[in-house]
Design a protein around this nucleic acid. Structure first.
Lengths: 222, 222
DNA sequence: CCCCAATCGCAACTCGTGTTGCTTTTTCAG
DNA sequence: CTGAAAAAGCAACACGAGTTGCGATTGGGG
């Protein structure tokens, strides 16, 4: 990774050493990741790290941008449900693997470190943008109305992963991913993200489109 | 707040002073919240704070438990959609107000501080548990099947708020809250959280309950 | 009313992060 | 091959968080 950044190979060696060292410490589950430890592991003086990256978060940001440059194969199977499901499984792999700790560390630093906040924000702005294609394709296919807010739908699909990663710590397994995808699909199909609705009745009234109320009572099983 | 904790009023005064000082610094938007600063604002020596709370996060945890003890009026209007919407608006108020910064600070500390992680986890375990009542009531009313996973539904309802609070920083406004509630409602109605489905057809097949596919295409407006 | 125990204040200290000034190495141009 | 600029190493330092030991205060039980 990190195809030599300048042909000179000058201090690019230092850069590579630091990044691989940081990466190594991360995957080893080092919760106490620190600049000094990274420098030591890289066989480099800490001042070099500080001068080049200014921050621990700077190093982590460079690591993250490495992942960002990997092309993600946005699913396009021709079926919205399948696309969403595969997308969710993709997100799951991104969250549970190595980048998970990276994201956690950066998100944790974000409130106090504007640079970290910007890195996280930018990373997911791009990722979410790519994911919107799944919804856009469904719109193009006529499965969804043109007014569909793809961004909002992707947000609903992705959010539960962050909840489990950053707040609650429950397993992010495949069933969870599938269920999350199904929830997003259902909301999309129900027109939740298609703001072509009437003037919006105030809070007390029924929010349901009055016509489509089939009194759904799926077989009182058991 | 904090109705005198022991009648003796002994060093409970210190406790109260520290908590109100911390609260004050928080609402003033002090991003660099520190034990020493709190102690100084409370007119108390920092050792007292460290001895009693051990951590900055300990203080924040006590502050949070103050909010936790406030009773939240879980909506119960008789209609699932309305209940979910009001619930979402309730969550919004909790996120955007003072507790928002508190939650952010604790969530940020969580990856490095097990105590903080436990505080956040416990707080939301309780809150989510309360919110499940909304779903349970709908089940009791017969609006939803008995096998409905209330917890999963609440997770989908709440998650987007955390995404915006902790990762992306986009406004958490009322429209967002309403849309999020509608998404959860749609997923619930579609049976996403009612695991009474057939053996689960592998990935390619349709994930929809085949019967309830009205080909909904909400009036191709515009 | 008084004394004991709990707890607070104070000051000094440790320790780790990040900074700074200077020297040494490295590389690229000429 | 050589010299100058850029970047790395090194060591000392500044700074703030958290700790510790001890003396002073305080409040409740006897």
């Amino acid at each position: 990774m990190s195809a030599g950044q300048r042909p000179g190979g000058r201090s690019a060696r230092v850069r590579a050493a630091v990044l691989t060292a940081a990466h190594g410490l991360l995957v080893d589950g080092y919760s106490e990741l620190t600049v000094e430890r990274i420098a030591q592991a890289a066989g480099v003086n800490k001042t070099s790290v500080y001068r080049r990256w200014t921050d621990l978060e700077g190093v982590l940001g460079d690591l993250l941008s490495e992942y960002a440059s990997e092309v993600v194969p946005i699913p396009d199977t021709g079926d919205l449900d399948t696309d969403l499901e595969e997308l969710a499984l993709l997100v799951r792999r991104g969250m549970t693997g190595e980048p998970g700790d990276l994201i956690t560390a950066l998100a944790a630093a974000a409130p106090r470190n504007p640079r970290a906040a910007e890195i996280v924000r930018g990373f997911f702005a791009e990722r979410f943008g790519l994911a919107e294609a799944v919804v856009d394709h469904a719109v193009a296919r006529g499965e969804l109305p043109q007014s569909t807010d793809a961004r909002a739908a992707i947000e609903v699909l992705g959010a539960p992963f962050f909840l489990r990663l950053l707040v609650v710590d429950e397993p992010i397994d495949e069933e969870f991913a599938r269920r999350t995808a199904a929830a997003a699909a259902a909301a999309l199909r129900a027109g939740v993200f298609s703001p072509a609705r009437e003037p919006r009745p105030a809070i007390g009234a029924s929010t349901l489109p009055p016509a489509s109320r089939p009194g759904r009572q799926p077989s009182p099983s058991r």
